[in-house]
């Protein structure tokens, strides 16, 4: 845990999934765009929403809310896609909304408690204190892990 804590000074993209405010260092985000039509696909992973055509490449779309088993308000339609690099491919994270981009210094990170607003702490690597609230820093590796434990 300790090594995960020591994030460097970095700019953070902050977005919302259900009730959780989640952050990713800007260096890990490739692109943010409004969700195009997603082609639904049957996979063993219920949180995989489908695939999209991103300029000629097929990109898998992961619904973060479903991934973290959050009871997402059905009325809120996930509208944005945060494109991240995972291994050798690009994966789109379906999120409810993009909030902000903030600068974080390495002193502002804290260890993750057992759960974060109902989501398992494994999905996060640290908490970041933004002025008055907390942003959970996403652990991409654990979140996109495909090995069935």
């Amino acid at each position: 845990m300790s090594e995960a804590l020591f994030l460097e000074d970095t700019e953070i993209i902050v977005f919302r999934v259900g009730d959780i405010t989640i952050g990713l260092p800007i260096t890990e985000v490739r692109e943010i765009f409004k969700s195009p039509t997603i082609t639904p696909v049957h996979t063993p992973f219920s949180y995989v929403n489908g695939v999209i055509n991103l300029r000629g490449s097929i990109v898998t779309i992961v619904d973060l809310g479903k991934r973290m088993s959050l009871s997402v308000n059905q009325d809120v339609k996930a509208v944005h896609i945060v494109l991240v690099e995972f291994g050798e491919e690009l994966i789109g994270l379906l999120v409810d909304g993009i909030e902000d981009s903030v600068f974080a210094s390495s002193d502002d990170f804290f260890p993750v408690p057992a759960t974060v607003s109902g989501a398992d702490s494994d999905f996060f690597r640290a908490l970041f204190r933004r002025e008055e609230d907390l942003v959970a820093m996403l652990n991409l590796e654990n979140t996109l892990e495909t090995e069935v434990a």
């Binding site: 696909v41 996979t43 063993p44 695939v51 000629g56 097929i58 898998t60």
Partner: peptide
């Protein structure tokens, strides 16, 4: 033929995707 991502590695029913 375009390749599919790792989440499909166990989905033998698809061999890829196309646009």
């Amino acid at each position: 033929v375009k390749p599919l991502g790792v989440h499909f590695s166990s989905s033998t029913e698809f061999s890829g995707a196309t646009i």
